[in-house]
Structures are given as structure tokens and as C-alpha cells.
Design a protein around this nucleic acid. Sequence first.
DNA 1: CAGGCTTATTAGCTAAGCTAACTATTGTGA
DNA 2: TCACAATAGTTAGCTTAGCTAATAAGCCTG
Lengths: 143, 143
Amino acid sequence: MAERVPTSQLAVVLRDAITRLNRRVRQTRPVGDITVTQLSALASLELAGAMSPRELADTERVRPPTMTKIVAKLEARGLVQRSPHPTDGRQVVLAATAKGRELLRQIERARDEWLTQRLAELTAAERDVLQRAAELLRRVARG
Amino acid sequence: MAERVPTSQLAVVLRDAITRLNRRVRQTRPVGDITVTQLSALASLELAGAMSPRELADTERVRPPTMTKIVAKLEARGLVQRSPHPTDGRQVVLAATAKGRELLRQIERARDEWLTQRLAELTAAERDVLQRAAELLRRVARG
DNA sequence: CAGGCTTATTAGCTAAGCTAACTATTGTGA
DNA sequence: TCACAATAGTTAGCTTAGCTAATAAGCCTG
């Protein structure tokens, strides 16, 4: 079925496919009027647990001043809570609030609904390919 | 190997994998100091051929005033050229210049270099899975 | 315990997105 | 035909998101 092609050519095809699908997924407008940047930070906080602004900035690949702004907005919406670090007086500990976690769940559902419908149109064998691919893609991204 | 899971769960896993890999790919800094937004518009122009600002705005899913700014910057860099529409006096025709196309090729090479190296670390069978997946992903994105 | 590192914020800039409002052109219907 | 609606593009003015440089506060070490 799939002809064997050079790895470099696979890279081109794969990047193109991922870029396009990512745009489509992002076009599903979020539920709670939250921006993509804010959502991503909130999701990281929920996924990896409480952390400092510095760590969150590193996770999101932005600079600390940028994260200061993002966190300020999330806090103003009551989605994130900040508390003092138990031992280090400089640091701040950020954590998603119950409201923040609830919003995340709502948005994930809305996004995945679109994708789920699309995937349902494929055959079981095709979904199987995608499932194995998903694991590989995560590994590639992590590497 | 891959256990059969519900389609909705596949959607979650797949979206997550794609989001992460997309971030990684984007982190590869472009060659010519061009922004992601500008690059995307330029790539669309190259891919789909000459079109009006309106059409390009629709393609990129932004509003016309936003595209006005993006095009202005691309034009200032000599990457895009604008010419009058042959019959409709209101419209403008946008096209990538030779310089713009050359920049696109450079950037694509740089990006894919990173991904190619990662893919080279997989087995041939795993690359085969990804190749079939890429085709499916494009189809899903198009749908 | 003085001076240097780390954490976080503030200030000030650019880019990217939006809506509303404007100009110019095209098309249309009485 | 021509007044008027629709369309294309831009301008004005706003918010968000990103950056660097500078500042303030706390920690650590010689």
C-alpha cells in the first residue's frame, strides 16, 4: 500500500499533515472565551501539577515576563491560584483551580468532538494505524 | 500491539500527540527572521498560486484587515508582489516573488532536517506506520 | 555578612489578531 | 440610466502575546 520513500521525504509529508490538522483542531473555538496561549498554560498546570512561574514559562517555551502576563489573566478569571512557596520566599506556586480544571474538561470535550466525528468516518484498520502513529509521534516530539 | 480503544479516546491521544509535535516543529527557528504568521501566508500563496487578499485571508482564517498588515510586511521584504486585477478594479492580485519562493525552500529544509533526524531513529516498520498515518491525517484535516 | 545569583515583576517595545468605519469600484433594479 | 446596494481593500483603534532591559526581593556562599 504505502510505498517506501526516503526518510527526508516522509518528514515533509508528515510535517505538512500535522500542520494542517493542527490548524483545523485549533479552529474549534474554545468554550469559555479563553485564548490558545492561556489554555495551553492552564493545561500544562493541570497535566504536570503545581509549579512556579519560571517552570511554567520553561514548559511553555516563553520568557518569564510573558508568563507573568498570562498567569495574571488566568488568575483574574479564577482559573489559576497562586500561593507562596513553603521555603523559598522568592518563588510562587501556581495551581489550577477547580474552576480551571472544569473549563479544561469542557474545552477538551468540544475539541475532541469534532475530531471524533472525523475519525469515525475511517475504517477500523485506518484508526488502528493512527493509534500506533500517535504513540510514535509523541516519542518523536519528546526526543 | 495497539489495543483497540474507543474512537473518542483515540481523538484525545491523537490531538495531544499532534499538538506536541507541532510545537516542537515550530520551535525550529526560521532562517530568514520571518514570523510564523507571515511564513504561513507566504506558503499558502506559493502552494495555491496567486490570489486576492480576501481569498488569502479566508485561506489563513484571518480577517481582511489582518491580512492587509501581513501582506504589507511580506511586500516590504520583497517576498510578495501585488498587481492590479485585470478586470476588477477593486481587487488586488498577490503572488510570491522568486525571493519569497527561495526563502520558503530554505526554511522547509531547515525544519525538516530536525524531523528527518528524529525519524531516522525509528525502525523502517515504524516509519511505514507514520507514512500511512500522514495520508490519513491529511484526509481528516481536509474533511 | 557583603556581594553575587535566582525569582518574579514592571516598563516599554513589536507583531498579530479583532471590529468599526471609510473609500472606491462593481453590479443591479426601478 | 442611474441611484443605491454590495464587494474589496484599507485605516483607525483596540487587546493579546511575545520579547529585552531594568528593578526589587530573597537566597546563598566565601
